[in-house]
Design a protein around this nucleic acid. Structure first.
Lengths: 195, 195
DNA sequence: GTCTATAGGAAGATAGAC
DNA sequence: GTCTATCTTCCTATAGAC
C-alpha cells in the first residue's frame, strides 16, 4: 500500500474522493480519520491536504457533487408530456440513479448533521430543489385530473422516502433487477396518487 | 452544571440515557464524546461508567430498548380483525409512535453501522420482526382479496420507508396534527395496496 | 506531490480519594 | 456515586525536506 517517496499520480485526487465516499458511507464521517482515508489511497495523511483544505470541506464537496449530478441527470431526462408519463419516468430515474450510487445517497442523507451550518444550507437547498421537481409533476397531474392526493406536499415527501428506501435493501444479483424493482415501485406509486 | 463532590442521584442513570439519546441523534454516535454526555448530565466523565461499561454498550442498550418498546407497543395495539382495519391501525400506530420518539427512531436507523457485529445482529433481528408484522397484514389482506400488490415483500419495505420518512419533516405545531398526517399517509397507503 | 515528524489537543477508559 | 487525575491512544492539521 505505502507509496515510495517522490512518486506521483494525477489521479490521487479522484482516489481520495472515492475512498472518502466509501469510508464515510460505511462507517460515518466522524468515525473515519484522515489517516484511514490516506491508508486506503496508499499515501500518508499529510498528502491528503493537497486535495482538500480540511476534512469538513471534503465531506461538503462530496455531497455537493452528488446533488449537482442528481439534478443534472434529472434535467437531462425528458420532463415534458403528460404527468402520468413524467411520474413514471421520475420513478425509474430516481431508483436507477440511487441504486447506482448507494454510497453517495447514503451519506447525503446521513451526514447532513455533520455539515457546518453554511454548508448544510447549500445541500438542503439542492435537496429541496429536487423535491420540487417531483412536486411539480404531482401538481401538473392534479391539474390534468389524472392524480388526486389528500396533500400534495406530503405525497411528494412520502413518495421520495419510499423510493429512496430501496437503497437500504437492494443488492445487485438479488431476486429482481433494478428495472424490475422500479416497476414494482411504480405500480405502488401510480395507485397511491391515481385519481 | 458541575455537581459538588459526593452528591448523589437515583435518577442519574436515566438522565445519562436521555442525554446520550439526544446527543447521538443530534450529532451522531462517533461525534459525541463521553465527556460531552457527562457535561449534559452534570457529572464528570468518569461517573458515566457507573451506568455503562463502555460507550458502545450504551448505544446498543438505547437501540435495544427502543426496538423492544416498539414491538411491545405494537403487540399491545389490537391486531385482529379484517386486514384493511389492521393496516389502518398499523399506519396510525407507526406514525404516532415514531413522531413521539424522533431521537430514538433517528439513531435506530442511523447508528446501525456503529454497532459491533454481534450487537448489530440483535437489532437487525428486532427490526425484521417488526417488518414481519406488517408483511403478515399485507399477506392476510391478499388472502382476503382486499389487497393486491405486485410484490408483498417490497410493498412492506416501501410502506415502512414511506411512513418512517414522516420523522424527517414533521414538527409539532405545524400545519397538520400528527393524527391528520397519519390520515394523509393512510390515504396513500390504502390506495397503494388496494385490490 | 509526497514524505517524515510533530505540534497541540481530545478521545475512551481506569485508579484511587472521599 | 462522584470526584480529580491520569494513562494511552488517536485525532486534525502543519512544517519543512526531498
Amino acid at each position: 500500500m505505502a507509496r515510495t517517496q517522490g512518486s506521483h499520480s494525477d489521479i490521487t485526487g479522484p482516489r481520495v474522493r472515492e475512498a472518502a465516499l466509501r469510508l464515510f458511507a460505511r462507517h460515518g464521517y466522524a468515525a473515519v480519520s484522515m489517516r484511514r482515508i490516506a491508508a486506503e489511497v496508499g499515501v500518508q495523511a499529510g498528502a491528503l491536504y493537497n486535495y482538500t483544505p480540511d476534512k469538513q470541506t471534503l465531506l461538503f464537496s462530496l455531497l455537493q457533487g452528488h446533488m449537482a449530478e442528481l439534478l443534472d441527470a434529472l434535467d437531462a431526462a425528458q420532463q415534458s408530456g403528460p404527468a402520468l408519463a413524467r411520474l413514471e419516468r421520475f420513478v425509474h430515474f430516481h431508483i436507477g440513479f440511487h441504486l447506482n450510487r448507494p454510497d453517495a445517497v447514503f451519506i447525503s442523507y446521513m451526514e447532513l448533521r455533520n455539515l457546518e451550518p453554511a454548508h448544510f444550507q447549500v445541500i438542503e437547498g439542492l435537496r429541496r430543489t429536487y423535491e420540487d421537481r417531483l412536486e411539480d409533476i404531482l401538481r401538473a397531474g392534479r391539474a390534468e385530473g389524472v392524480f388526486d392526493m389528500a396533500d400534495t406536499k406530503i405525497a411528494t415527501l412520502g413518495l421520495i422516502a419510499m423510493l429512496t428506501g430501496v437503497t437500504t435493501w437492494y443488492r445487485p444479483g438479488g431476486r429482481l433487477s433494478a428495472d424490475e424493482v422500479a416497476g414494482v415501485y411504480w405500480d405502488m406509486v401510480r395507485r397511491a396518487v391515481a385519481a
